[in-house]
Computed example of a mutant assay.
Amino acid sequence: MTGDSEDPNDGEQYHLEVGPEDVADSVLLPGDPERVEKVVEGWDDHEIVGEHREYRTATGTHEGTPISVTSTGIGSPSAAIAVEELARVGADTLLRVGSCGAIQPEADVGDLIITTGAVRQEGTSKEYVREDYPASADHRVVSALVAAAEELGYDYHLGVTCSTDSFYPGQSRPGFDGFEARDSEAKIGELREAGVYNFEMEAASVLTLAGIYGLRAGAVCTVYANRETGEFRTEGERKAAKCASLAVTYLERMDEAVEEADADGWHAGLSIER
Rank of each mutant, 00 (worst) to 15 (best):
Tyr224Met: 11
Pro66Arg: 01
Met201Thr: 11
Ile212Asp: 02
Ser163Glu: 00
Asp138Met: 05
Glu273Pro: 00
Gly117Ile: 04
Asp7Thr: 04
Ile74His: 12
Glu34Asp: 12
Arg96His: 10
Leu215Gln: 02
Asp255Gly: 15
Met201Asp: 07
Pro134Trp: 10
Glu231Asp: 15
Asn9Cys: 03
Ala204Thr: 14
Val141Ala: 02
Glu85Ala: 04
Gly269Met: 06
Gly189Phe: 11
Asn9Lys: 09
Asp264Ile: 07
Asp22Met: 11
Pro77His: 08
Ala241Asp: 14
Val146Phe: 05
Arg192Leu: 06
Ile113Val: 15
Ser205Lys: 01
Gly211Gln: 01
Gln171His: 02
Asp177Asn: 12
Gly214Glu: 11
Ala107Met: 10
Leu16His: 03
Leu145Lys: 12
Ala261Met: 05
Arg88Cys: 08
Gln104Pro: 00
Tyr133Asn: 09
Arg120Ala: 07
Glu273Lys: 12
Asp45Tyr: 09
Ala107Tyr: 01
Ile74Gly: 14
Asn198His: 10
Ser125Asn: 00
Val36Leu: 08
Pro20Glu: 11
Asp165Thr: 05
Val109Asp: 06
Asn198Phe: 04
Ser163Asp: 00
Gly123Glu: 04
Glu273Leu: 03
Tyr55Pro: 12
Glu21Cys: 08
Gly11Thr: 01
Thr164Lys: 05
Val129Lys: 15
Asp264Ala: 14
Glu51Thr: 04
Glu127Lys: 11
Glu235Cys: 00
Gly50Asp: 10
Gly159Gln: 02
Leu29Met: 10
Val196Ala: 08
Ser99Arg: 11
Ala147Thr: 13
His139Cys: 06
Arg227Val: 08
Thr249Gly: 06
Thr115Asp: 12
Pro105Thr: 09
Glu51Ala: 10
Cys221Ala: 13
Ser271His: 08
Ala79Tyr: 02
Ala80Cys: 07
Asp138Tyr: 05
Phe199Ala: 09
Thr72Trp: 03
Asp155Val: 00
Pro33Phe: 03
Pro169Ile: 01
Ile188Gln: 13
Leu191Met: 14
Ala24Leu: 07
Asp7Asn: 15
Ala244Lys: 02
Ala79Phe: 11
Leu152Asn: 12
Ala247Leu: 06
Met1Ala: 11
Ser184Glu: 13
Arg227Ser: 06
Leu94His: 11
Ser271Leu: 02
Leu215Phe: 00
Glu47Thr: 13
Val39Thr: 05
Pro66Val: 02
Thr93Leu: 08
